[in-house]
Amino acid sequence: MPNAGSSRTGRKQRGSRWPVLLGLLALCYAVAALGGLASTDAGDTYNALDRPAWAPPGWLFGPVWTVLYGTIAVAAWLVLRNPHDPTRTAMTWWSVQLLLNLAWTPLFFTAGEYGLAFLDICLLLAALLTTMVLFARHCGAAALLLVPYALWVTFASALNLAIWLSHT
């Protein structure tokens, strides 16, 4: 009879994980929405910038970030799925990178502070790489899910630097 109870407990634990995923998705997309509110004219601002020839078109950022915010949430969810695994440090770094991500848009688009935005994105990249290392200790798939995000942030860092240097 103990197997029947443990089976129900296992199903209950698995079922209770979905609200956590939905909460993480809501949090990540709230960060996206706040960034959008902080840069309502980002498209016009981006198009008016002196950009390098390799800069992507402005329309690409929305779809890319939509996917990336989803993977950021799912990666955290994968790490949090094991309640017996201490994840506090990993999730603290995940939170730090998300806050730095949130800070970048108003620094770059609203304030036009390209140098401070570059500092922020460099700190974001460092926090993200730390998050990936810590996530890998808990769940390799979670760390791998953050690879496209890290590549995009690296590219965005180079683009931010190029724009900053062209405006100094």
Results as ranks from 00 to 15, higher is better:
139 C>Q: 11
163 I>S: 06
160 N>V: 14
71 T>D: 04
31 V>E: 00
41 D>Y: 13
125 L>A: 12
166 S>M: 06
118 F>G: 02
146 L>N: 00
131 T>R: 00
96 V>E: 13
70 G>D: 08
9 T>L: 05
26 A>S: 13
26 A>Y: 15
91 M>W: 13
95 S>T: 08
120 D>S: 11
107 L>A: 07
122 C>V: 08
150 A>Y: 03
161 L>E: 08
33 A>N: 06
94 W>T: 03
15 G>P: 02
98 L>I: 15
21 L>S: 05
166 S>Q: 13
125 L>C: 10
124 L>Y: 14
68 L>W: 03
115 G>V: 13
77 W>S: 12
86 P>D: 08
45 T>R: 14
55 A>T: 09
113 E>A: 15
79 V>S: 01
122 C>N: 12
86 P>R: 14
39 S>Q: 06
100 L>P: 03
46 Y>L: 09
135 F>E: 00
44 D>H: 11
95 S>V: 02
131 T>S: 13
167 H>C: 07
47 N>I: 02
158 A>C: 14
44 D>A: 15
60 L>S: 15
25 L>S: 07
168 T>G: 09
110 T>P: 03
45 T>F: 12
143 A>D: 00
168 T>E: 10
36 G>V: 12
7 S>M: 04
137 R>G: 13
54 W>H: 03
57 P>G: 15
18 W>K: 11
37 L>S: 04
133 V>M: 13
10 G>D: 07
91 M>C: 09
19 P>V: 04
51 R>E: 00
85 D>H: 15
116 L>I: 08
150 A>E: 00
37 L>A: 10
110 T>G: 09
164 W>S: 12
17 R>K: 08
17 R>S: 15
33 A>H: 06
148 P>F: 14
138 H>W: 02
139 C>S: 07
129 L>R: 10
153 V>W: 00
157 S>Q: 06
19 P>W: 01
51 R>Y: 04
8 R>E: 15
107 L>D: 00
33 A>G: 06
8 R>M: 11
31 V>F: 15
116 L>K: 13
88 R>D: 04
3 N>I: 06
155 F>L: 07
49 L>Q: 08
76 A>H: 01
52 P>R: 10
40 T>W: 07
99 L>E: 02
23 G>V: 02
24 L>T: 00
47 N>M: 13
101 N>Y: 01
128 L>M: 13
98 L>K: 02
15 G>Y: 13
98 L>N: 05
4 A>G: 11
39 S>P: 06
17 R>P: 01
92 T>K: 08
29 Y>Q: 06
1 M>D: 14
151 L>M: 09
134 L>M: 08
101 N>R: 11
75 A>M: 08
32 A>P: 02
113 E>M: 14
36 G>W: 01
33 A>W: 15
94 W>I: 05
39 S>C: 06
